[in-house]
Design a protein around this nucleic acid. Sequence first.
DNA 1: CAGACTTGTCATCGTTCGGCGACATCAGCT
DNA 2: AGCTGATGTCGCCGAACGATGACAAGTCTG
Lengths: 95, 95
Amino acid sequence: MYARTPADLGRLVRWRRRALARTQQALADQVGVSRQWIVRLEAGRSTLEVGLVMRTLRALGLTIEISDPAEPAPVVLPHRPIDLDEVLAAVRRNP
Amino acid sequence: MYARTPADLGRLVRWRRRALARTQQALADQVGVSRQWIVRLEAGRSTLEVGLVMRTLRALGLTIEISDPAEPAPVVLPHRPIDLDEVLAAVRRNP
DNA sequence: CAGACTTGTCATCGTTCGGCGACATCAGCT
DNA sequence: AGCTGATGTCGCCGAACGATGACAAGTCTG
């Protein structure tokens, strides 16, 4: 899940918190912030402390990865992997 | 590159900025912040505005991905792909 | 080495953040 | 419908953020 803006972040945090069936207060207690701060984060406020944001993501069991999108995408295996043994057996039967 | 703390972020931003051969002032101008703010970010300050941090990462051509580490890692191909034609030719020569 | 450029540090100012308390509103259950 | 718990909103206060200017220190090049 990509986060381009604080609004993206806010939506993500709310979704995750609900997925974990947690209240704003419980999350706030875990992170060590006020419930109102969680409300602001979920509302997509851009002026929040980045350190607290990172702690909150961590409290939700999420990781933050920063990467360069210009790097080539990893090659993805086809849905049905080729059965190498089958191919080799066929060649052995009929080279 | 995972970022767990603002200090991680700061190191990453500095590394990337230097990789792009940019000065702090140039980056600051691009993002619309003061140079001193960039200094603080690179120093790993935790109390900076998250919106500005996200904008800075974007200005450096970086993306932010938030994910659940419990999800299975994607299958990655080995560094040297198997040359199927070679394998098949070998079997044809010596089944 | 000197000079130019870059980065680090400090202090000040106006604005606003985060915590708090309080209340309003919404959501779910019986 | 009433009740309970969860969430949204508002205002106030002290702390500190971000911009600015200035200077110190570090780095690089000819």
